[in-house]
Design a protein around this nucleic acid. Sequence first.
RNA 1: GGGAGGUUAGCUCAGCUGGUUCAGAGCACCUGCCUUACAAGCAGGGGGUCACUGGUUCGAAUCCAGUACUUCCCA
Length: 878
Amino acid sequence: MTEISARYSPAETEARWYQHWMDKKYFASTPDDREAFTIVIPPPNVTGVLHMGHMLNNTIQDVLIRKARMQGKNACWVPGTDHASIATEAKVVKMLRERGIKKSDLTRDEFLKYAWEWKEEYGGIILQQLQKLGASCDWDRTAFTMDEVRSEAVYKVFVDLYEKGKLYRRKRMVNWDPEAKTVLSNEEVIYGLENSRLFHVKYAIEGSDDYLVIATTRPETIPGDTAVAVHPDDPRYQHLKGKKVIVPLIGRVVPVIFDEYVTMDFGTGALKVTPAHDVNDFDLGVKHKLETVDVFNDDGTMSAEAGIYPGEDRFVVRKKFADDLESAGFIEKIEDYKNNVGRSERTNAVVEPRLSLQWYVDMKAIAGPALAAVESDDIEFFPKNQKNLYRHWMENIRDWCISRQLWWGHRVPAWYLGEDTFVAENEELALEQARVKTGNANLEASDLRQDEDVLDTWFSSWLWPISVFDGFNDKKQLEYYYPTNVLVTGWDIIFLWVARMAMAGFEWTGKKPFHHVYFTGMVRDKQRRKMSKQLGNSPDALKLIEDYGADGVRFGMLSCSPAGGDLLFDEKLVEQGRNFCNKLWNAMRLIKGWEGDSDKGMSDLDAIATQWLEAKFNTVVKEVEDNFASYRLSEALITIYSFIWDDFCSWYLEMIKPGQDEKIAAGTLDKTIAIFSSICSLLHPYMPFITEEIWHQLNPEKQDDCIVSAFPIYKEGSDVVLNAVEHAKKLITQVRELRSKNGLKSRDSFPLIAKKTPNTETYFTLPGYREVCLKMAGLEDFSLSTDDNAVGISFITDAENYTALVNISIDVEKELEEKQKELTHQLGFVASIEKKLSNERFVSGAPADVIDREKKKLSDGKERIQLLQSEIEKLKSL
RNA sequence: GGGAGGUUAGCUCAGCUGGUUCAGAGCACCUGCCUUACAAGCAGGGGGUCACUGGUUCGAAUCCAGUACUUCCCA
């Protein structure tokens, strides 16, 4: 044997080939006259590290892009990172705190300097990790949402929307994250049921000893109460018209208002109204002209205005103030309760509704074409059912709050001077506007005050498919690469990202940003929990690649991940991938160990084996192609996997394997290498490293690479050999089973007789057919016979009868019982088909090929019944 | 409260337009093998009333309705 190890070791191979591909610039794309195939990466957070979700998502993209490249398209996969303003700022703040620096002690510029330093140091690590996975991105195009080109696009778009009147600044209720101290969009708030307590609090009615009870989960907001509301039809409260109540412990006298908004059957039917801290209360406040008392600071502590526990955290105060109320006798009862609590997607802090002045995009003004495109499948979703979710959100779309009270991000391009607002792409342009507006030519930039806020990260992400091609400037690039072919992303960001990209696409290019959207599922652990850092249930992605190889990991991620379906990650899957690599490796070792003999002609056996394998490969190519067309990537992979493992290794290689110390016919060896090379091409998109390695091991003199080889194409061909060998495989398996059942060793040989029928006769006329059976079943002889009286063990394959002339005592009783059982089954089977075929409506209604198939089933079934009956007769006569 | 899915082998899932010889795969399990490519392997095997009830149909795991359980999204 050769010196090649029996175990495939990926580490060295993978690094070497990745470098080779980079050196050859295979990933680089420039526009030419070929058809473009474009994917833009969902940009990971610039400070992120590779996790399971990234691996799944990026493996899928790599499979698609590699296949397109092999199919002769100009494949372009654009990588990049997202500045992730809130997440990154939080990380930087934490890093500074560890160094003893408080953000509040820094100026904006000082803070940003630290942030950029951090970005330069840790940013992009994730891109290097993607290379380990084999991602064939055009790295020369690496973009960052905060680099110059992408930032320019953001400012342009902001100005454009403002000028079109589709962007505005307004004071309204927002979702406030007291930890990050910024506003959030609706989509960044995650709601969940949480355990809490429902306090029933007594509010005294002014000028009487009576009181009314209000149920609330938030007693700490009581200092902000400026009214109590009840339903106008509620019989319990009719006597309170025109009355006032006293806010407990606070002493504020507030009116009882009557509004149909109040639900009569919740709690006591009376509602405390805190306009500053609840969206609905705010609306009530506006309607009834109520006073607004803001009881919180921006970090969620009590404000001076609240008058109780100033500076203390809202949750601490909830308990303290409830205790105060209780000891003062204002609590009627406390119930355990589950309510929906909104938390910040990034910081997990409980979101506080808050009145605030922010910038918004008028989404209704831009949503139309993006909704229509998905409705009509112009943008096609895989899987389709995500359309419903998308439609629902788009039809109920709310304005998008895009300003954030952070420093890391694109600063809002708006400048203020007195009452005036100047929105412009840069300071000079804003100044110009200001000079014109005020008529004061001596106005200086320092007279203007720029908005302090930055923009939501997604306000740059939604431009990504355009901005990565510098599409707001370079129309030629955009023309060539855009719309992109497919977007691969998780369904969890369908609103945050996918829908907004669709809107941006139509708004600024007049075209959709992508033809297809492939939604991946979430990677979960075996207990179905989403993988997360907090839970610590996520395996270390890089460790996995180290342990199992990138190809093994890619196989594991993909072998079990239907579009949109969640992937329950199990290390077993990756193990299977590694084992598959080893299988391929050893198939290569075997072939490389063979010595070709150019004087030796190809035997009939070699010829039929080769023809069969080629035909089978052809059907696999077809199936793979069909699966790809509908993004059934997992199915395509499994198809290739079983073809390689079963057909190629277990059957084909065993068929043509030369005897010990024998040489193989050169023609057979060449054909085998050719087919194995084609197999490498077919598998390459999934497992790029090992296929490249084997490709070169098989063809040491070849200069070209598997990565740019032609992806196999389906060709029409005859099925005669294919069908014959498929029958032979079943027959051989049954002979092996017969051995196993009767305790025979694999070297115990015996003759086999095939009953002569048109089918078996046809098989026997195929050169090499008999030899395949002899070799694979380990037979002494294999012949056709019309003689029904041969003594031995009989069995049926498809509808053919075979008798093994093996001289062992058989358990007649057991054998009879089995045959009898089989006969009963067959009789039932035939009866059901006969019924079907005698049915007028079936024969007239069903398509011709279905009827033909049924007829074949019937005749085969009848054939089998006859065979079984004669077998039974024979057994009985023994 | 509104909506969308799911329920197929012990586990995780395929099963596409209703029709291949009577439901497949991987893992797990059982039996036999250190057969000179691979024990990360080879050969063979067992295991399913396709959640339940009804309907449509010549024919239903597949389509429809209802029930139960379950997951998710929105409020």
